[in-house]
């Protein structure tokens, strides 16, 4: 018989647990943060009657005299140098529009990619006409944030061999606040899986491919068959990341590796069970805390 579980929305289990005592002061919408006049208001705040009030629910971060409130869950707000994963939504003259889980679509200019062949040369009209050959609508790519415009939209670039079009793999989207900022966001895990953790909450899991050899500026697409063991490893990692996200554990290479080790006693498909997800998330959190 099929094993079916039905969870009511109201009884949806909470997969979080108190591990450390941590007394963060939470400010809610409309709450007065400070009455003193000599502070500056940052993101997530507004001024009314000379008082700085919070406009979102979150924790206060103070940098010298600048007060901002960081919401617990929000759209991705880009910073220069972030690694992001995006999906092409539209092709315009000289640019691609890319969905990066942020408030506005990002732009990838044709002048900020490496053309096939890798050599540096002028972008001519012919290149503009063949843009669709490089990236079509709905294609996925990895890129770096080059610039943030005044209105908050991002400009991306792929001027490195590690960035470019993504071919075979799985995309998971989690909340951007769960991604830990690190030096490196490209990881080849020992289990034969390569993971790109985008700062925008999109995570790309794929078999390890050697980018250097292809020399196509990262726009080649390999569609070779992938062995069953590789696919199983990919799916397992995907389920682990999902388990971590549902338990609100920060996602970075160490936590994924720990969750993977933790998950080995189960089959990959069993990881979709909510209780198993919770166990893995919880154990990973314990391990991370021990390590600290």
């Amino acid at each position: 018989m099929a094993n079916i579980k039905i969870n009511l929305l109201m009884n949806k289990a909470k997969y979080t647990s108190d591990l450390g005592e941590n007394n963060c002061r939470i400010y809610t919408t409309g709450e007065v943060i400070t009455e003193q006049k000599d502070f500056m208001r940052g993101h997530g705040t507004y001024v009314e009657d000379g008082l700085i009030k919070s406009s979102v629910v979150g924790v206060v971060r103070q940098i010298n005299k600048l007060i901002s409130v960081v919401p617990l869950k929000s759209k991705y707000v880009g910073e220069i140098g972030d690694v992001v994963i995006g999906r092409v939504t539209e092709i315009q003259k000289k640019r691609w529009k890319i969905d990066t889980n942020s408030r506005l679509d990002s732009v990838l200019l044709i002048s900020s990619i490496n053309l096939p062949g890798g050599e540096l040369r002028r972008r001519n009209a012919e290149d503009e006409q063949s843009m669709r050959k490089l990236l079509q609508e709905e294609d996925l790519l990895s890129a770096e944030v080059q610039n943030v415009y005044v209105d908050g939209s991002l400009s991306l670039h792929t001027r490195s061999l590690k960035y470019g079009k993504l071919s075979q793999g799985i995309l998971i989207s989690v909340s951007p606040s769960l991604i830990k900022r690190r030096k490196n966001h490209f990881h080849n895990l020992p289990c034969g899986v390569s993971v790109i953790i985008g700062n925008n909450g999109y995570i790309w899991i794929s078999p390890i491919v050697n980018v250097e050899i292809e020399g196509q500026g990262g726009f080649a697409q390999s569609l070779d068959a992938i062995s069953k063991s590789d696919r199983e490893a990919i799916v397992r990692i995907k389920n682990c990341v999902q388990a971590l996200a549902s338990c609100y554990v920060m996602i970075y290479d160490t936590s994924i590796t720990f969750a993977y080790e933790e998950s080995l006693k189960y089959e990959a498909k069993e990881l979709l069970n909510h209780d198993t997800m919770y166990e893995i998330g919880f154990n990973t959190k314990l391990k991370l805390m021990q390590q600290e």
Binding site: K14, T16, G20, C24, V57, V59, V249, M250
Partner: peptide, 20 residues
Amino acid sequence: LDEAIRSNAFELVNSELTNN
């Protein structure tokens, strides 16, 4: 509402931002 929001926020903060 405030109580619901705060308890929800506490859960998230306790698990998430400890590592940040």
